[in-house]
Simulated assay, not measured.
Amino acid sequence: MSAWSSTLDALMRERAAALFGYAYVLTGDAHEAEDLLQEALVRTFRSSRRVANIDAAHAYVKRAISTAFIDRHRRATARPQRAGGDDGDYSLARASAAGPDPSVRVAAHLDLHAAILTLPPRERACVVLRYLDDLPVAGVASELGLAVGTVKRYLSDAVARLREVCADVDFDTPESIPVDAHARGGR
């Protein structure tokens, strides 16, 4: 068995659920998440890439999932769209996501998930990486290959939209930037 094949086997045994969960949070659909994960695995291992260990393979596949998700939506917007009722119409996700569950907490999670699904792909990827994967802004920028300022803008826009729908969700983060206040005109 080749090195990449054994790495792939170990990755799927140990981390398949986490990778699938990551894809599911981005897509909101189990079948799309499976397809996205499969596409990411093919992208990662198609060239017999030398991956040193499972952690590196996991990072490569997560990056490939993010990239494939954004690429799919970019291609979809360039193609003609079918009218209403389309499987890609996420405006219907909110109505179908809120079930007759008596738990307020579960309903709030479903509302948040439905709201996340309404975000544009890049904003959604930034929110998932920042708040669900708990990456710092610089980590999100590195993961998606974007500038830090761009990620901050996407996060700001996304959080503003999410707060409109889910006002009770706390998006405040402990991350802060130290600022040294100097008096103007010298020391």
Rank of each mutant, 00 (worst) to 15 (best):
A3Y: 12
A3Q: 15
T7P: 05
T7Q: 11
L8W: 03
L8E: 05
L8N: 02
L11N: 02
L11S: 05
L11G: 03
M12Y: 07
R13F: 07
R15K: 14
R15F: 06
A18R: 13
A18F: 10
A18V: 11
F20A: 02
F20K: 00
G21L: 09
G21F: 05
Y22W: 08
A23E: 01
V25W: 02
T27Q: 02
T27W: 00
D29W: 05
A30K: 08
E34C: 04
E34V: 04
E34H: 04
Q38E: 13
Q38L: 10
A40C: 07
L41H: 01
V42C: 04
R43H: 12
R43Y: 09
S48E: 15
S48K: 12
R50W: 13
N53W: 05
A56V: 07
A56K: 03
A57W: 00
A57C: 04
A59F: 06
A59K: 09
A59C: 06
V61Q: 01
V61F: 01
V61N: 01
K62R: 15
K62Q: 14
I65A: 00
I65T: 00
S66T: 06
T67H: 11
F69V: 02
I70T: 01
D71E: 14
R72K: 10
R72W: 03
A76G: 04
T77A: 08
T77G: 05
R79T: 09
R79C: 07
Q81C: 13
R82I: 10
D86P: 04
D89M: 04
D89K: 03
S91I: 07
A93Y: 07
A93E: 08
R94L: 09
S96W: 11
S96H: 13
A98H: 13
G99M: 12
P100T: 12
S103N: 14
S103W: 07
S103P: 04
V104F: 13
A107Q: 12
H109V: 09
H113M: 15
H113Q: 15
I116M: 07
L117E: 04
L117M: 10
T118F: 02
L119R: 01
P120K: 11
P121R: 01
R122E: 08
A125H: 00
A125N: 00
V127A: 01
V127I: 07
V127S: 00
V127C: 01
V128T: 08
V128N: 03
L129R: 03
L132S: 12
L132Y: 14
D133Q: 15
D133L: 12
D134Q: 15
L135N: 03
L135A: 05
P136F: 01
P136C: 06
P136Y: 02
V137R: 01
G139W: 02
A141K: 00
L146D: 06
L146Q: 07
L146M: 14
A147C: 13
G149T: 12
G149I: 07
V151M: 04
K152D: 06
R153P: 04
S156D: 12
A160Q: 14
L162R: 01
V165C: 11
A167G: 15
A167R: 14
D168W: 09
D168A: 14
V169S: 06
D170V: 08
T173S: 15
T173W: 08
E175N: 11
E175M: 11
I177K: 11
P178S: 13
V179R: 14
A181K: 13
A183C: 11
G185Q: 05
G186F: 09
R187P: 11
